[in-house]
Structure formats: structure tokens, C-alpha cells
Amino acid sequence: MNTRALFTPATNAMTLVRNEVERMFDNVFSYGNSTRTFPSLNMIEGENTIYVEAELPGVSMNDLDVTVQDGMLTLSGRRDVATPEGASTLRRERGVLEFERSIALPTNVEMEGTNAVLRNGILTLELPKSVNARARQVPVTEG
């Protein structure tokens, strides 16, 4: 049985959201929504640690796999972007149901001491550099 409302005279009176106000600032950036670029990654090199951060809104730890192999870090998983039951979707900008992304690490890392925290939709990985990869001061003596 088709119960979809075919005639909704109230539509014009409540043009929520369909007409989004023009963006307010010139330097507003939009997000890439393709699977190729999800999640977005940042990488920072500390003295003894490589920090990798990923934007993963709506992803729970149970739905996320993090692996390090052959100098590559790979993040894969899924998130729920489905239309709620009984609703119709007027606008869809949030992409990606399933994702997989890899990035080369700049140095070897120790798996021991690796730390992963997923909080407020941000994954933060702390990857300790392997001992050989750490900068070492070479003592120079007069001779």
C-alpha cells in the first residue's frame, strides 16, 4: 500500500533546509566525500613518536580495523549513514558506508606501545618509532 503523501500544500510554508543560506565566509572548506579520501588523515612526527589522526565521525571502535604492515598503516571499517526507517532523505552530503585507506609511515614503528584512542569522532594513533629510527646524538670527542 502506498501511503506516501502525494499532495503536501504545506511544503512552501516550511521550506526548511531545502534552501540553505549561502555560505557565510569565503574561506569555508567542504569535505571530500568519496571513499578514496575517507577518512581524512593528518600525520605528525614527534621526537620518538609518529602521530596519525583520522576524522571518523560516527564510527565505533568495534567497526574499525587498524593494521600496520610493511610500513603501511591501513584503516578500514564502516559507519551508518542510512536513512532512518519511515523517513525520506532531502539532502545527502555525508558519504561513505564502508571505507579503507592506507598511508605510508615515514619510519619503522614498534607495535609494542602503540596507542589508539577514538573520541568524539577523531581517531588518534600514537606509534612509537623503532629504536633505530630515533634520532641519536653522536658524541664527538677531541682527539
Partner: peptide, 8 residues
């Protein structure tokens, strides 16, 4: 980025 849904 946003999704917008509508029901009754």
C-alpha cells in the same frame, strides 16, 4: 557535511 531527513 549534513544529511537531512524528513518524516511526518
Amino acid at each position: 557535511p549534513v544529511d537531512v531527513h524528513e518524516n511526518d
